[in-house]
Design a protein around this nucleic acid. Structure first.
Lengths: 236, 236
DNA sequence: CGGCCAGTTGAGGGCGTTCAATTAGGGTGG
DNA sequence: CCACCCTAATTGAACGCCCTCAACTGGCCG
């Protein structure tokens, strides 16, 4: 056994997600400062809440391993699955402005995450403008994503699903996973919620894409067998 | 004439939108610092671009008077009207992360706006963490708005329009305008784009709400004549 | 083996779109 | 100031996509 490796603490300075997550664009010195403020390696399991809508601001969270869904319920009780969260992505912005979380974050499988506590965030704000600038940049990016993401607009259901699969494929690839074969951690119900469709429609569309030999579907296991055709479907 | 009033420079320290716009939540001293960095009173006219998608980051902009629309075109050429912008609201976040604007901001009528230039923004970041913190908070809020705003999800067209009108009514009220009678600066085409509907459908729905005596429509002039019923329609 | 829930598949109906025609409104030149 | 034009807005009819409701299948766990 390699005791040196075994005892090596994983933190921001040696994290494999450094270029995707918060350290992105920071100096070595700043990454070290950040690392000292980050609480690493919290583990939660499938179905666990990372935080709940209505909770006091819990902190900014970087998903390190696993995936999560962002769920929000409006005053009428309607649910909306706003996002699927992958490793290297930040969540928690929904609690910054009002100090109360506007969404729930729920683990879709075993999830390992890092966290900057609210009090540490204040330290950041006062001592490390460059980090705060980076946070600001991250949050602005999130605005762009959510406003420009075409899947939330009324298009054909077919197109929405194809676009979702393409976007997911790209996001997985940039995280070092296979872009052509993956396990969809969202179930049909959740995916339907996310795309504003019914589970029946999602199921039918999966079958249709399968018959067209564009993807291969077996439950949650998805293979993209004809990327070009999938792109054509996504652009109608 | 009152020459004292005539010569009084309008800036953040005496702006009527102080509680809505960027100074919100800042100390008097910070507001003064902010004010020194803000370029006030730029005037543009109907149809003018405040900035264009693809432009270098132009700065953070607060709409002081008038209204604007945020338009974004994706790689396929599909347009999306992401937002209607009212006085006291901030735009420009779409240029922060990549330093290139992801949307165009277009004046819907004569618009007066204030601006923090990109280089001044860097000054802010380095010297006034409290301002940056406020900016961060603003951008996080924008995320919530765009993700939680129910009008961008698939609901009945009727409900989407009713919700849009209710939200607009509230936003106008908090800005000191009438909440029951207003001039819709968006035309039917733009409104349809925003709600992901066709102009024909929007027009039909306006007529329907009019016949139901819930609103009174005359071109761009809208009166809400039965707020309670409108709320019922919005919640289905 | 039986029960349960997620997922799939089928039939029918409703709502928004599409295509087309008509009306209203805003700007320009005589 | 009015006649004209061009675009925006309205209204109508028919189609098509997705939803609803329902039945069925398959996998997992007791």
């Amino acid at each position: 056994m390699n005791s040196v490796l075994a005892n090596l603490k994983i933190d921001c300075t040696n994290c494999r997600l450094q270029n995707l997550c918060l350290p992105r664009g920071l100096s070595k010195q700043d990454i070290q400062s950040l690392s000292d403020l980050v609480q690493n390696d919290t583990l939660v399991h499938k179905g666990d809440f990372i935080y709940r809508q209505g909770d006091d601001f819990y902190g900014l969270i970087a998903i390190n391993a696993g995936s999560a869904k962002m769920l929000s319920t409006d005053s009428e009780g309607n649910q909306d699955l706003t996002n699927l969260v992958l490793p290297g992505e930040l969540i928690g912005f929904d609690g910054v402005s009002t100090n109360t979380h506007q969404c729930s974050a729920i683990a879709l499988e075993t999830v390992n995450y890092c966290k900057i506590n609210p009090d540490k965030l204040d330290v950041l704000c006062n001592q490390f403008p460059s980090l705060l600038r980076e946070l600001f940049s991250h949050s602005c990016e999130a605005i762009n994503e959510s406003q420009r993401n075409p899947s939330h607009k009324n298009q054909s259901a077919n197109k929405k699903l194809a676009q979702f699969l393409l976007t997911l494929s790209n996001r997985l690839m940039s995280r070092g996973f296979s872009s052509t074969e993956f396990n969809l951690t969202l179930n049909r119900q959740d995916l339907a919620l996310h795309l504003s469709l019914t589970p029946e429609t999602v199921s039918r569309l999966f079958s249709k894409l399968h018959k067209q030999k564009i993807i291969s579907v077996s439950g949650k296991n998805i293979q993209i067998t004809n990327l070009e055709k999938l792109k054509i479907v996504a652009s109608e």
